[in-house]
Design a binder for these strands. Structure first.
Lengths: 207, 207
DNA sequence: TTAAATACCATACATTTGTATGGTAAACAT
DNA sequence: ATGTTTACCATACAAATGTATGGTATTTAA
């Protein structure tokens, strides 16, 4: 039975999780030490030993970056969801994370992409539903017909993107919602990124 | 413009991709050398140099395991799909990978879970559609109501799981398909795993 | 009160790791 | 014919890495 982690140990474990999620691999002892301002690796060494003793990680001896996470079920790591996004009518976007989703450890988030939780049903014909998590990449150029996330008058939307001469058209898959047409110069419109994938956890569906 | 990779370079790149996908981090030069039977790291060093020159990877100098994949769009790595699975009527399962899906680099597959591609529409009310990729974890105990993947008479199905006294019931969300009832002792039924998530790439939806 | 755990420090050491340099041989292109 | 790329080898080295050992001070538990 794993005992409780101390506050510092929790922070180190959290750093391990985030480092793996952000950089795609566990940190070295030196990297952990640097992050926490420790002047040597021995301190980290001891903390890792304690965390391992309590069952949260496993160290692969002699292997560089050999820290394995042994979280509850080994398959999910918490990731912040940056906001909720309307598939139907726009919803407010939140400055901080509104929620945390357990993305599978298959999930190494690319550094610059992020998650948004979909509310509403305007994309149901594109098979995106309320509660789904969309993975948004802000560094790709949108092509016509792709699904994008955008901010419009301080609210966020997820819709199909079409570029016209002087306008941008955002259309829903669901015919109940009419297309939104925006002049290209309209100041309070900002393209956030394109939706590269959808993920849905099955957890809540268990009965 | 990246030139073509040689056969050996391709194999090394493939190893890099798989290593990252399987182990969660890029390999060291020594690990690559060992895998290919090279007697020193310098050979790997040169190959990596060539691969980097051609634009497929980026080396972070001095950083251990500092090989970054710069695939086409940096966000997708190919993963084998082990088989197709019927959401409606059972389909044959294939011994080898039938396909390769570009799972986002957010995708570090847990060692023991795998992917199946869904065909058919019996789960459409559970929002799983033909073409979706389900992530299957073979090492979890199924609870009633969870969606599972199972092999039945050499075919594979994805359905909701219900355990009864002496039977197992596999039901579709779609009322057009009747529940399948199996005696617990029925020899050619094998539970493969539970579906922990669904992933869908948006790539093909671009117009 | 005594022992154990926690949270740091410092130093030391064998390996590992990335890298540099140089050599050999074959394939290919100009 | 000559140069370039490819595909290996060997050796060397500084830096990074995991690890071991020992010390100090504070907090917590028995």
């Amino acid at each position: 039975m794993p005992r409780e982690l101390t506050e510092i140990q929790k922070k180190i474990l959290e750093f391990l999780i985030n480092h793996k999620a952000d950089r795609g691999m566990p940190p070295t002892l030196a990297e952990i030490a640097k992050h926490f301002g420790y002047r040597n690796r021995a301190t980290v060494q001891q903390h890792l030993g304690a965390i391992e003793k309590k069952g949260f990680i496993k160290k692969n001896p002699k292997l560089s970056r050999g820290i394995e996470l042994t979280l509850e079920d080994k398959f999910f790591i918490p990731r912040p969801v940056l906001g909720e996004v309307a598939a139907g009518n726009p919803l407010t976007i939140y400055p901080d994370a509104v929620d945390t989703i357990d993305l599978p450890t298959i999930a190494h988030m690319p550094k610059d992409s992020f998650l948004l939780k979909v509310k509403g049903d305007s994309l149901k014909d594109a098979y995106i539903f309320s509660g789904d998590i969309v993975i948004v990449n802000p560094n790709l150029e949108p092509k016509n017909g792709q699904i994008v996330a955008a901010i419009l008058d301080d609210a966020a939307v997820v819709k199909r993107f079409y570029k016209k001469k002087n306008e941008i058209e955002l259309v829903s898959e669901n015919p109940e919602y009419k297309p939104i047409v925006i002049d290209k110069k309209y100041p309070s419109f900002k393209l956030v990124g394109i939706v590269v994938g959808v993920y849905r956890s099955m957890e809540k569906k268990a009965g």
